[in-house]
Design a protein around this nucleic acid. Structure first.
Lengths: 248, 248
DNA sequence: CCCTCCAATTGCATGTCTCGCAATGGATAT
DNA sequence: ATATCCATTGCGAGACATGCAATTGGAGGG
């Protein structure tokens, strides 16, 4: 719609992979050097891009700033934080807080595992809905009448050998997640990691976020993970309660 | 330089204060409604803006993503993290990692205090150089020959009654910070908070970051803070060492 | 059920602003 | 000194964004 804006954003994306030179950027974005430079000037002016030295461009701090203010806006995050920490302390495993954005999961908070084996993931990262425990929970938040077509419209690539790609199977999983307020990921997203998630509701009972517990299979076998089921659900209930939800 | 890009970025900044409606955005940015909408479309297309419902615009997750990837890029952050945690655990106070960007301090990492009294600050926040301990350290990283004019060119507003606004006095502080690899902030930034900072050097000996310990005066008086001086310096030395710096 | 109001959206004509080119400047390596 | 690499600037053509005004769509009230 807006060429220069799009190109500007493309430049930011290109910079996400690390510092680049002007020509490289111009090339990856597919515009003339001089054009890239003028766009970068605007970005630099607003602090979105930073030049440590005259021939390197990096992402600037305006982004940090914006992103963190945006995170503040996710009110559930505020409320959830201490509960997540507590769950993290009690279990010693990685805890995530995720919300849905269109057809993706967005991780908005995280408590690191205390174990030496850290998992790869970061606040702000996105993941597919169909192969994550939090995704299944968040899909359970989609009104029942539109859930079917929502799931059908989803891209469902097989990311591991365990990924559920079949529409019917997945829909069934989501229905169970809705029933039990608990969903699982049996290595469907990353081969050697499994997760257990539950949902957080706001005042009106809508599922607005999901909390998950993740661990590499080597650290925690499946039954042990299930052992934390009630803890995770209880954590979500506490958060929901604080958001003003009264069960029935 | 690039009108639409600048306007697009202005929209993002406007959204930083929370969700807005189209007209509001158009007004605050000073463009016609339809223009704002078309820009927002581009932003939305790239995930920089999110529409939870049809008449509200919020910042989108592409920002979280970019910001966190940008943070990864700050390599000193990776290296420093565990040292910061250790310092945080040992002291129980708030620990910050900051770098300089032009004439500002940017906080790139933080370990929260274990005390109930939390301090306000967030990763990505910016602060002035002249009235923060980390700022003084980072200015000590400016080559000596240009330091004088750098300090002179700085805006030096008095943020509290203790802020040093005088050019000579400040320059002297910076010189001492350079000498001792330790700087102080005696309530110069926030009236009731004081800090102690030291610098981190890379392979070439350049100061690339600063680590600080902060506490409200009510929790820790000035002498007690000074008691942690050697700990903070030692932490920085460990980080520097890991970055490849060999002291002479 | 219809009407009103508010906010989002679209078509269109205008001219502003951006684009790519090619040449210049400055720094570093050979 | 020469070559190379990268950033920067002036300029003319025209693509692209802009603002206007009219339309659509949806929520709420009578």
């Amino acid at each position: 719609m807006s060429q220069s804006l799009q190109r500007g954003l493309a430049l930011l994306n290109a910079l996400a992979d690390g510092a680049r030179t002007l020509d490289q950027l111009a090339e990856t974005v597919g515009v003339h050097k001089s054009t890239a430079m003028r766009l970068l000037r605007s970005l630099e002016g607003e602090g979105f891009v930073h030049r440590p030295d005259s021939h390197r461009y990096k992402l600037g701090s305006a982004l940090f700033d914006l992103a963190n203010r945006a995170l503040d806006d996710v009110e559930v995050r505020e409320v959830a934080r201490e509960h997540l920490r507590e769950l993290g302390n009690r279990t010693g495993h990685t805890v995530h807080l995720a919300v849905r954005e269109r057809d993706q999961v967005v991780y908005v908070d995280k408590v690191d595992s205390t174990r030496p084996v850290r998992m790869y993931s970061r606040i702000g990262a996105r993941a597919p809905l169909h192969c994550t425990a939090v995704g299944k929970i968040l899909m359970a938040g989609v009104p029942e009448e539109s859930r079917r077509e929502f799931v059908a419209a989803l891209d469902r690539p097989a990311l591991t050998t365990h990924t559920l790609t079949d529409e019917r199977t997945l829909l069934e999983e989501v229905r169970r997640a809705a029933d039990e307020n608990c969903a699982l990921d049996r290595g469907e997203h990353e081969e050697f990691v499994h997760c257990l998630a539950s949902g957080v509701r706001d005042t009106r009972g809508t599922i607005v976020a999901a909390v998950s517990l993740s661990a590499p299979k080597v650290l925690l076998d499946f039954d042990d993970l299930l052992g934390w089921r009630d803890e995770v659900i209880a954590t979500c209930e506490r958060i929901s309660a604080e958001l003003g939800w009264r069960s029935e």
